[in-house]
């Protein structure tokens, strides 16, 4: 059974419900997998899909405009990005596009992108149409979901989709940051390992001696008959 560890960043404008979405998801379905620090903005949870355990590490980010410059630090080495916007706010939709541009500029390795329209419980105040959002998501090669963190609609689907995306990503590419526990560069390291041992044999003896003397206080005498 494979285990995939994927880092998921949650991006989006302030107040669109990034944290609420994540907390809703984590609280709902994975109560026993949450790290003890609930209430913080970091979560890890496990999803089992088709015999593959996907361990998601969800990094919440600050959405304020003033912290935008710092975002690259967060999505460095990320495997997936949830880009959240508020369907009742055209502004959040536009600012989200800004996040995506930044993201695409700063991340070279392939990444699972998932656009999430939050707050569908307030659909009577809707400003961003579903079609508009879907069209945009397609243009950047992302999937699109709508959910309501408050009323707990469609939140699970979002993360399920991310997990499946990670599995696909792992299947398609060899050059990725995903941590997979049957990694293929073991050979590489084993080679250097043997090389290392060969060069350092001379020193090993002395080290061992010194360690033994520390461990036992004196050298071990051979037992007589």
């Amino acid at each position: 059974m494979k285990t995939i560890v994927g880092k998921v960043v949650v991006l989006g404008h302030q107040g669109v419900g990034k944290t609420s979405t994540v907390i809703r998801y984590v609280e709902n379905s994975f109560t026993h997998h949450i790290t003890p620090t609930v209430g913080a903005s970091f979560f890890s949870c496990k999803i089992l899909i088709d015999d593959i355990t996907v361990k998601l590490q969800i990094w919440d980010t600050a959405g304020q405009e003033r912290f935008k410059a710092m975002a690259p630090m967060f999505y460095r080495n990320a495997n997936a990005a949830l880009i959240v916007f508020d369907i009742t706010s055209q502004q959040s939709f536009e600012s989200m596009q800004g996040w995506v541009v930044e993201l695409q500029r700063n991340v070279e390795s392939p990444m699972v992108l998932c656009v999430v329209g939050n707050k569908i419980d307030l659909s009577k105040n809707r400003e961003v149409t579903r079609d508009e959002a879907i069209q945009y998501a397609r243009s950047i090669g992302a999937s699109y979901h709508e959910c309501s963190a408050m009323q707990d609609q469609g939140v699970g689907v979002v993360f399920d989709d991310v997990a499946r995306g990670l599995i696909r990503l792992f299947g398609n590419t060899t050059d990725h940051n995903l941590k997979v526990y049957d990694s293929e560069n073991i050979d590489n390291i084993m080679a250097s390992s043997s090389e290392l041992e060969a060069t350092d044999t001379g020193k090993e003896e002395t080290v061992n001696l010194s360690i033994r003397s520390i461990a036992h206080g004196n050298t071990v005498k051979p037992k007589c008959c």
Partner: peptide, 20 residues
């Protein structure tokens, strides 16, 4: 810091509040 924020506002702490 998270505890401070929980104390001041109650409820879960989002990154929007944590980073400042």
């Amino acid at each position: 810091v998270v505890k401070v924020l929980q104390h001041c506002q109650g409820g879960p702490v989002s990154a929007d509040e944590f980073l400042p």
